[in-house]
Amino acid sequence: MKAEAWLFSGVAVFFAVTGGIYTWFSNDPAGVAALAVSFLMSALIAAFLWRQFGRGGYRPEDRKGAQVREAADRRFSFPARSYAPAVSAAGTALVGLGVVQGLWLALIGFGVLVPGIFGFVFRSGEGSS
């Protein structure tokens, strides 16, 4: 997680610097708000990744001499037959399209998204440790 934490920390610094320069030279409140929200969201992800790295240490992907079998003991893996990621992605796409196209499509998207979320939350224990 350390590489990802550094990546999102760099993105957060980029948005902070860009937002500061943009605020100084522009009178556009929408651009300032967009850059501020972008900074806050990337900083939130970076903080989460740094916290996870602090709790769990290096993953096998972070070490050069790691063996493939070390990555088999994952806590947050899904079984190969899990429908939750695909259903959640489809539901999220429909909700996003519904914001543009109309409420009817957003409601259908929420109807597709809810089973996907339940699949994530109440997944069976097979395939995970």
Rank of each mutant, 00 (worst) to 15 (best):
K2G: 03
K2V: 13
A3C: 00
A3Q: 02
A5Q: 02
W6K: 06
F8H: 14
F8K: 02
F8C: 08
G10P: 08
G10E: 07
A12R: 00
A12S: 12
V13H: 01
F14N: 01
F15N: 07
F15D: 01
F15T: 02
F15I: 01
A16C: 08
A16F: 14
V17K: 02
V17W: 04
G19C: 01
G19R: 00
G20T: 04
G20K: 00
Y22L: 05
Y22D: 02
T23D: 03
T23F: 10
W24P: 00
F25L: 05
S26P: 07
A30P: 00
G31E: 01
V32S: 09
V32E: 04
L35V: 09
L35G: 09
A36L: 14
A36C: 09
L40E: 11
L40C: 12
M41R: 05
M41W: 13
M41Q: 09
A43C: 11
A43L: 15
L44M: 14
L44E: 11
I45S: 12
A47V: 11
F48E: 10
F48I: 12
L49T: 03
Q52G: 02
F53Y: 15
F53W: 14
F53A: 13
G54C: 03
G54F: 04
G54E: 07
G56T: 05
G56F: 08
G57P: 04
G57A: 05
G57C: 05
G57N: 03
Y58V: 10
P60T: 03
P60G: 05
E61W: 02
E61L: 06
D62F: 04
R63H: 09
G65E: 15
A66I: 03
V68A: 15
E70A: 14
D73H: 13
R74S: 14
R75Q: 08
S77V: 10
F78L: 15
P79Y: 14
P79R: 15
A80K: 11
R81D: 15
S82Q: 06
S82H: 05
S82P: 06
Y83M: 11
A84Y: 03
P85G: 11
P85W: 08
A86L: 13
A86C: 04
V87I: 15
V87P: 03
S88Y: 08
S88M: 11
S88G: 12
S88K: 02
S88H: 04
A89N: 01
A89D: 02
G91A: 07
G91Q: 06
T92G: 13
A93L: 13
A93T: 06
A93P: 00
L94F: 13
L94C: 08
L94M: 13
V95R: 01
G96P: 00
G96I: 07
G96W: 07
G98N: 03
V100P: 08
V100E: 14
Q101C: 12
G102D: 07
L103Q: 14
L105E: 03
A106E: 13
A106D: 10
A106Y: 05
A106R: 04
I108L: 15
G109E: 04
G111M: 07
V112P: 06
L113V: 09
V114H: 04
P115N: 10
G116R: 03
G116Q: 05
I117V: 15
G119V: 05
V121N: 08
F122K: 04
F122T: 00
F122M: 05
R123L: 02
S124Q: 11
G125Y: 07
E126A: 11
E126G: 02
E126N: 08
G127D: 11
S128C: 12
S128N: 12
S128A: 15
S129E: 14
